[in-house]
C-alpha cells in the first residue's frame, strides 16, 4: 500500500519532461511576443511622429498627392501627401488579384478535380519552383522583358501600373494556386459523390457544389495573394517607375508605398521629417496587412458557420 502511495506522489520522469517542455515552449512564445510587440511599437511610434512631432495634418497625408518631404511648399508646409502611392499600391494589388484568380482556380481545379494524379505530379513542382524564385529575378525579368514590350505597345517609358501588375500576377499566382488547391482538397469527397449520384455532370458538380462549398477558403487564398502583392517591394520597385505621381493610366510611371520605402529609406536621416514620413508609409503598410489578416479571419469564421 505505502509503496503505491509513494509512487503516486512521486513525480515521474515523464512528468518532469512535460514541465521542462512547457517551460521551453512558453519561453519561445514570450520571446516572439516581445519581438512582435516591439516591432509594432517601433513602427507606430515613428510613423505617428510625423503627425505629433512634425505637425503634418493626417488629412493632407491621406488626401494630397504631392510628396516632397524635404521641401516646404508656398505656405511653408512640408509636402507629405501619400495618396498617389496608396492609390498605386491598391491598384496593382487588386488588378494582380483579378488576373491571378481565374488562372489559379483553373490550375487548382485541374490539379484536384480534372487530373488529380497527372496534374498534381507535373504542376506541383512548377508551382514550388515559382515560389522559390527570388523577387529580384521577377523584377529583372519584368524590367528586361515586360517593360520594353509595354513601351513598344503603348509608348512612354513602359513602366507603371501595368508592368507592376503583370510582375505581381506571376508572383502571387503560386500562392493563390497552392491555397486554392488546399481549399479544394479540404472538401470532403462525399460532396462529389452526393452531387454525381443526383445526376449532376462533373462540371455541374465543380461549379455548383465544390466551388461554392470552398468559397470562404478560396476567398482567403485570394486575400493572401493580395497581402503578398501589397507588401512586395523589390520587384515592383524595378518596374513601377518610382515617380511619386498620381497615375494617369496604366502605363505612366508612379510609385507604390513599398517602392518608395525601399528607394528612399537610405537617403534620409533618422529622426528628421523625411525619415518620419517614410515610417508613416510603413505604418500604412502595417495597418493594411492587419486589415488583410482580419479579413481572412472574418471570412474563415463565416466559412465555418455556413
Amino acid at each position: 500500500m505505502t509503496s503505491i502511495k509513494q509512487e503516486l506522489r512521486h513525480a515521474s520522469k515523464a512528468t518532469r519532461e512535460d514541465v521542462f517542455g512547457k517551460v521551453i515552449t512558453y519561453c519561445c512564445v514570450a520571446v516572439i511576443a516581445v519581438l512582435v510587440i516591439s516591432i509594432l511599437y517601433f513602427i507606430a511610434s515613428r510613423g505617428i511622429a510625423t503627425f505629433t512631432v512634425n505637425h503634418v495634418s493626417l488629412w493632407s497625408f491621406i488626401s494630397q498627392t504631392s510628396w516632397n518631404p524635404g521641401l516646404l511648399d508656398a505656405h511653408g508646409q512640408p509636402q507629405i501627401g501619400a495618396l498617389a502611392m496608396m492609390v498605386t499600391s491598391f491598384t496593382v494589388t487588386i488588378l494582380a488579384a483579378i488576373i491571378a484568380t481565374p488562372f489559379a482556380l483553373a490550375v487548382a481545379l485541374y490539379m484536384t478535380e480534372i487530373a488529380p494524379n497527372r496534374g498534381a505530379r507535373i504542376l506541383q513542382p512548377v508551382i514550388e519552383l515559382l515560389v522559390g524564385i527570388p523577387s529580384v529575378v521577377y523584377g529583372f525579368i519584368g524590367l528586361t522583358v515586360v517593360v520594353p514590350y509595354i513601351r513598344h505597345l503603348f509608348g512612354g517609358t513602359g513602366m507603371g501600373i501595368l508592368a507592376g501588375t503583370l510582375v505581381l500576377f506571376v508572383m502571387i499566382l503560386p500562392t493563390v494556386t497552392t491555397l486554392s488547391v488546399d481549399a479544394l482538397n479540404a472538401l470532403p469527397g462525399y460532396l462529389r459523390d452526393a452531387s454525381l449520384a443526383l445526376g449532376a455532370t462533373r462540371w455541374q458538380t465543380i461549379h455548383k457544389v465544390l466551388l461554392r462549398a470552398a468559397t470562404p477558403r478560396l476567398l482567403t487564398a485570394v486575400i493572401f495573394g493580395m497581402a503578398r502583392a501589397f507588401g512586395e517591394a523589390l520587384a515592383v520597385q524595378m518596374v513601377i517607375g518610382n515617380a511619386v505621381l498620381m497615375p494617369h493610366g496604366l502605363v505612366t510611371p508612379t510609385a507604390t508605398l513599398t517602392s518608395q520605402l525601399t528607394t528612399q529609406i537610405g537617403n534620409t536621416v533618422m529622426g528628421t521629417l523625411p525619415n518620419n514620413a517614410l515610417w508613416s508609409l510603413a505604418l500604412v503598410l502595417l495597418v493594411m496587412s492587419l486589415i488583410f489578416n482580419l479579413l481572412i479571419r472574418f471570412i474563415g469564421k463565416r466559412g465555418q458557420l455556413s
Binding site: L191, A197, T201
Partner: peptide, 27 residues
C-alpha cells in the same frame, strides 16, 4: 443524368451539401 435521377442513392454517412435545406433539396 436521367439514370441517376431515376435511381437515387443514399449513403452511409449523411452527406448534405453545406447549403441551406432548401438549396439541398432543390439541387
Amino acid at each position: 443524368v436521367t439514370l441517376r435521377q431515376k435511381i437515387g442513392m443514399v449513403f452511409q454517412q449523411p452527406n448534405p451539401f453545406p447549403f441551406s435545406v432548401y438549396d439541398n433539396v432543390a439541387y
